[in-house]
Design a protein around this nucleic acid. Structure first.
Lengths: 170, 170
DNA sequence: CAGTTCGTTCAGGATTTATTGAATCTTGGA
DNA sequence: TCCAAGATTCAATAAATCCTGAACGAACTG
């Protein structure tokens, strides 16, 4: 008979309850719409489901993902503000818990992601207009007008973000 | 001397002007944010750049993509309302031109895509709540409250879409 | 300082997604 | 009805993306 493998008594079972699995799937699907890898949705889903702080190893065991995925996924979530690190006396592990203030999350997303994309689009449009107006580049007739319409729409979209932010405060 | 290969005199050159290439890249990038394949962005970009109606073969030649990609890409754009088919007397080809009313495009996107996703999320949330409230599923304590918060946020987001649509009408 | 425990990184493998091109279907004209 | 041009489909291939796990470094501990 082989020696019993050493195990530190887990405070809660490492298998997922059906309810947890369901929550995880929900966030995996949500993440797909934001082009996030499955593992990121899984991690946030588990943290959201349990409402507790978990260490990296915990996520690896319960979700059955690799340390690499867990580490990278946590980084993404940290940078997005979707997860907070908490610390415990006399414990070297990092514990993470889900940010549950969804409104704050969305607001942050709008401020960071959306704003960044709008700015990038702005740069592109400026460059595009320069290229189009250069006679050497053989722009089809009427193109400059169409690019102008792109820009005017871009300005309109820019005015939209603050409006949404305001709405979220209600 | 080999016979001259038969060629139907093209009305415009099959190589892309720099201005056209720039516009195409712009829409390729835009499409990435919507998880659209490169080919779809290229097709819309070319139609937008020239402002003219093009047949499938035209797109294949100028963009250097396969017939398959062109056909599927056009279908996606058609279904999204981003492209319109036009017809010509005594010509069996289908010609496509870009829908230039961007505001209408965005409105349609909100109405179709966004609404569909919200409805899907609604179904998922209802199911999720059922699973969570079933005692057999071992939901962690407090989870039902968190799911309730998800739903309340979902309701708020639903109210957002009409608001944006209204804004676009201005 | 040697030995541990954690977390991160990244090259390589696995999986998902996009593209190709030949076969097939559709349509209109003779 | 047959033919040919045009469009679509889809199985095979290519490309992009994600995941893994071993190697590494940092930070503690005895």
């Amino acid at each position: 008979m082989p020696p019993v493998t050493k195990q530190k008594a887990p405070l809660s079972p490492v298998v997922l309850a059906p309810a947890e699995r369901e929550v995880i799937e929900f966030f995996v699907h949500l993440g797909r719409h934001l082009s996030l890898p499955r593992s990121v949705g899984e991690i946030y889903g588990l943290l959201f489901a349990t409402g507790e702080a978990h260490a990296l190893d915990d996520l690896v065991q319960r979700l059955g993902i690799s340390k690499g995925s867990a580490s990278q996924g946590l980084r993404v979530l940290r940078e997005a503000g979707a997860v907070r690190a908490t610390f415990r006396q006399g414990d070297r592990k990092d514990y993470y818990e889900a940010e549950l203030e969804l409104t704050a999350l969305v607001r942050r997303f709008l401020r960071d992601q959306f704003a960044a994309r709008m700015e990038e689009a702005d740069h592109r449009l400026v460059q595009l207009q320069a290229v189009v107006q250069d006679p050497d580049n053989a722009a089809p007739r009427g193109l400059d007008g169409r690019v102008e319409r792109l820009q005017s729409w871009h300005r309109k979209a820019s005015r939209l973000a603050p409006l949404v932010t305001a709405f979220l405060k209600i």
